[in-house]
Design a binder for these strands. Structure first.
Lengths: 228, 228
DNA sequence: ATTCACTCTTGATAAATATCAAGCGGTGCG
DNA sequence: CGCACCGCTTGATATTTATCAAGAGTGAAT
C-alpha cells in the first residue's frame, strides 16, 4: 500500500467512523490492487474471499440471468465498501463485480474482516450503519422497479445525482448509457426513449452532459420523495 | 408483556444471538401490541419511532407509489425484526407496514434501540448479520424483477418456500394471492396466469395449497440458484 | 338454503417495453 | 482521406404485462 493510498483511505466514511486503529488492524494484511476498466473482481457464485474498499474509480455489481442476460444492480464509487454481506455471512456471492472506471481497490481478506467485526465494536457499529443505508438504497430501487415507469425511473435517478434544490441544474453521468440502462432496469433503446420523454420536461442531454431546466418539475413528474 | 410473550421472544434468532441480558435491556420499556389483520403499524414518510419484533403473525412492508398504486415489498414472519434501518439511521420510513395475519408485536423505542446498538457489542454484531441477510434478500428480489419473467418469478418464489430437494413437494401459501402478486411485482391477474403456465411443469394449485410434481423441473425452468 | 361480499380466474384489449434492424456521428487507425 | 468500429439514436414490429370487464368459486351471515 502506497502512502497515497493511505491518504485516500483516510477520506472514506469508514475511516471517519472507526478511526485509525481499527483501520490499521483491518488493512494489516490487505492488498491494494490497480484494476483497469473491464476487470472482473469476482464472479457470481464464488466464495466471498475479500471485502473491497474503493479508493478511486468505480465498480459495478452485475447479476447474470440464466440465459446470458445480465443487469447492473448497483454502482460503487470511491470511498465505499462493498460485498460485505457475503463476506460477513461466509456465503457464496449473489453478484459479480466489474470495474467500470479504472480503479484502485483495497482488498481485505473476508476472514480478517469477519474477525474484526466480531471483536471491534466500532467497526460493527459502522457496518450496521453502512448496511442500513444500503438496505434503504435497495428498497428504493425495488420501489422504482415496481411502481415507476421507465421515464420516471430515469427522472428519479437523475434527481439522486444532484443537490435537492428546485431550480435548474447540470450534471454529468459517470457511466455509459448501456450500463445506466441496466442499473435502471431497461434496455439502452428504452433509456434513449426515456430521455426523449423527459425533453418536454426540460431535460436536455448531449452525451453524458445532462441539463435540467427545472428540478421541481422533474420531481413532480416522478413523485420524488425526499426520503433519503 | 405476558410470560407467554417472553417465551415467544426466546424463540427468535435475535434472542439466540444476543442472549438474555441484552434482550432484557432492550425490552425494559418495550410495549407488546396485539395487532389484528389489516392494522397499519406505521406509514411511509413517518419518523421511525419503534423497532418491531414479531412474536406471532405476519406483517407486510408496503410501498405506495405517487398515483395511489402500492406494492408489497416483503413479508416478515414470527421471530423476525424489522424496520431497523430507518430506526438506526433516525430517518423517515421508506415503507408502510400492514398486518397481514393477526399478530403480536414487541415495539421497542427507536431511541432505546439506537442506544443499545451503540453500546452492546453482541447486539451490534447480531444486527450486522440480520442486515446482511436482508441485503441478500433484496438483491435476490431485484435480480428477479430485472431478469426473470412473471412465471419464473413465481417459480423461484415457490422454491424458496420448500426444502432444497429434487422430487415432489407440497406447500401452503401463507398469504392471499393479491398480496403475493404485489410481492412478486405483478398484478393478481398475471399471477393467476403464471400459475397456469406452471401447470405444464407439474405445479397444481387449489386455493393456497400448492403441489409440485418435480422440484428439479421447476428449478431448471427458472434457473434457480441455490445461493441463499 | 339463499344471498352477499369476496377472492380468484378467464377473456378481450390496450399499454408498456423489448427486440430487431438501420442509420448517424463521432474516433482511432491504416 | 477513407474505413471500420463503437456508442447512441430512431423506427418498425413483437412480446410481455397491465387494464378492463365478466364470470365462477368460496365462505359467512341470515
Amino acid at each position: 500500500m502506497r502512502p497515497s493510498d493511505y491518504e485516500l483511505l483516510k477520506l472514506t466514511p469508514l475511516y471517519a467512523a472507526v478511526g485509525k486503529d481499527s483501520i490499521d488492524r483491518l488493512i494489516r494484511d490487505a492488498i491494494v490492487q490497480a484494476a483497469p476498466k473491464g476487470a472482473v473482481l469476482f464472479e457470481e457464485g464464488d466464495e466471498a474471499q475479500f471485502v473491497y474498499v474503493i479508493l478511486a474509480g468505480q465498480v459495478g455489481l452485475v447479476a447474470g440471468g440464466s440465459g446470458g442476460a445480465a443487469t447492473l444492480i448497483e454502482f460503487f464509487n470511491a470511498g465505499e465498501i462493498f460485498v460485505a454481506p457475503a463476506a460477513i455471512l461466509n456465503l457464496r456471492l449473489l453478484v459479480s463485480a466489474r470495474v467500470t472506471h479504472d480503479a484502485r481497490i483495497v482488498m481485505i481478506a473476508a476472514e480478517t474482516f469477519r474477525h474484526a467485526v466480531a471483536h471491534d465494536h466500532a467497526l460493527a457499529v459502522a457496518m450496521v450503519a453502512v448496511l442500513a443505508k444500503h438496505w434503504r438504497l435497495l428498497i428504493r430501487q425495488i420501489k422504482d422497479l415496481k411502481l415507476r415507469s421507465t421515464a420516471e425511473r430515469l427522472a428519479a435517478y437523475l434527481l439522486t445525482l444532484i443537490p435537492a434544490t428546485g431550480g435548474p441544474a447540470t450534471l454529468k453521468l459517470a457511466e455509459e448509457r448501456k450500463l445506466l440502462a441496466g442499473r435502471l432496469g431497461m434496455t439502452p433503446e428504452t433509456l434513449s426513449r426515456a430521455f426523449v420523454q423527459l425533453r418536454k420536461l426540460g431535460v436536455s442531454s448531449r452525451g453524458r452532459q445532462v441539463q435540467i431546466a427545472s428540478v421541481r418539475q422533474l420531481r413532480d413528474f416522478c413523485g420524488f420523495d425526499d426520503l433519503v
